[in-house]
């Protein structure tokens, strides 16, 4: 029994959408080097649709696989749909993660939300604040470390 599912290993070995979008419309970074994982999501948005998405991740195998899967799940989708993405959906799409690695899928969800929020903030677009996690004091990114 391997540590990770075949799906996780596939996305870890061949991550989709790795890289940077230089002229991104929204960028979200979560995590902290002290905790050993950082995820950064870059979005290119056109007409409220995610035209392109790239990620950079510093972290373990499941962090890289979660980022890769999350970007696949939101690529080409309207922002409203991307905001509905949950860590559970990322985990399920990966055929599961070990219990102590679920945190990685939460980071992926939060990084995407942070990137969308960045896009809204930059363009002065009104939004429902409840849609976005309050990162202050949240243990997932362990910023308070």
């Amino acid at each position: 029994m391997a540590l990770y599912s075949e799906k996780v290993m596939d996305h870890f070995r061949n991550p989709r959408n790795v890289g940077v979008i230089e002229d991104a419309d929204g960028v979200g970074e979560v995590g902290n080097p002290v905790c050993g994982d950082i995820m950064k999501i870059y979005l290119k948005i056109n007409d409220d649709v995610i035209e392109d998405v790239k990620f950079e991740t510093f972290g373990c195998g499941s962090a890289i696989a979660s980022s890769s899967m999350a970007t696949e799940l939101i690529k080409g989708k309207p922002l409203s749909e991307a905001l509905q993405l949950t860590n559970k959906a990322v985990t399920e799409a990966l055929d599961g993660l070990p219990a102590h690695k679920l945190h990685c899928s939460v980071l992926a969800e939060e990084a995407i939300k942070k990137a969308v929020k960045d896009y809204y903030d930059k363009n002065g677009i009104e939004y429902d604040h409840d849609l976005f996690p309050d990162c202050e004091g949240c243990e997932h990114c362990c910023d308070g470390h």
Binding site: V18, E56, F58, I64
Partner: peptide, 14 residues
Amino acid sequence: NMSPFWRDLVNGKR
């Protein structure tokens, strides 16, 4: 090459 932490180190942000 895929690490935002490394990018920050290279760019002098950390």
